[in-house]
Amino acid sequence: MPVDTKRVRGPEESQSPLLFLPSIAKKSVAAERGRQDGRRRGQADVRPVFARCGLVSQAKGSAYIEAGNTKLICSVFGPREAERKDEAGASSGRLLCDLRFAPFSCPNRGAWIPSSEDKDTAQGLLEALRPGVRLHRYPRAQIEVNVLVLENDGSALAHAITCASMALADAGIEMYDVVLGCSLRLDGNSFLLDPTLQEETAGEPGAQGSVTVALLPSLNQVSGLQADGDMREDTLAEAVRACMEGCHKLYPVIQRALLRAVHKRASPSES
């Protein structure tokens, strides 16, 4: 996205009015036994997912995914001749990942220029996708993956992983397996699988953590793992297992969406 540096972009420093809101919402989540959207705590209860391939006609492959209010779009370009040639690129291809949050995707307005945290999320996406793609089949080439978060209502990275792997599959890139992502929020002693943005930010301080797992479901390999927060080792193991279960719940939906895209492309005479 180009940034117009000459345009006056309002005062140097501005803050979202939400900060001045008395924090009522913070307690309500913790107090309830269940969750606001009716899902259960500690269960592999993911939000219903809507996924579709091939929305961006200009891209080699693309996908759109919607989970609750989290909405993402991903397009894949390439493989094409690599721009930067280094020694490592000679035998296998390069995968480039870009992940951006639209400025209006979060309650607080973001900047168009990705912050270092966004870059880090993109790095997480890259590391989760790379084991799934058969890059050695594309020597000297590069594949670009661009993810745009239109609306962020929690678990953005996890859904970005799923969305990007669908787009890669849609682009006809060779892959070992699809890559599925799932996040989890640790709140006190219970899990909130596939948390919403409110659940991600709320809760008592000191007893939280978040875990994101990327899974290659049919090979049963974990391709990405990120965890923050203060947690015990057995809690972490349990959280990883719960995320893997969440990924398996997503698997049939994604498979069906991909199959539908393949059917659509197949010549109509056969059907």
Partner: peptide
């Protein structure tokens, strides 16, 4: 012995 961050690299 608590874990504050895990990342696959």
């Amino acid at each position: 012995g608590t874990i504050t961050c895990v990342r696959k690299v």
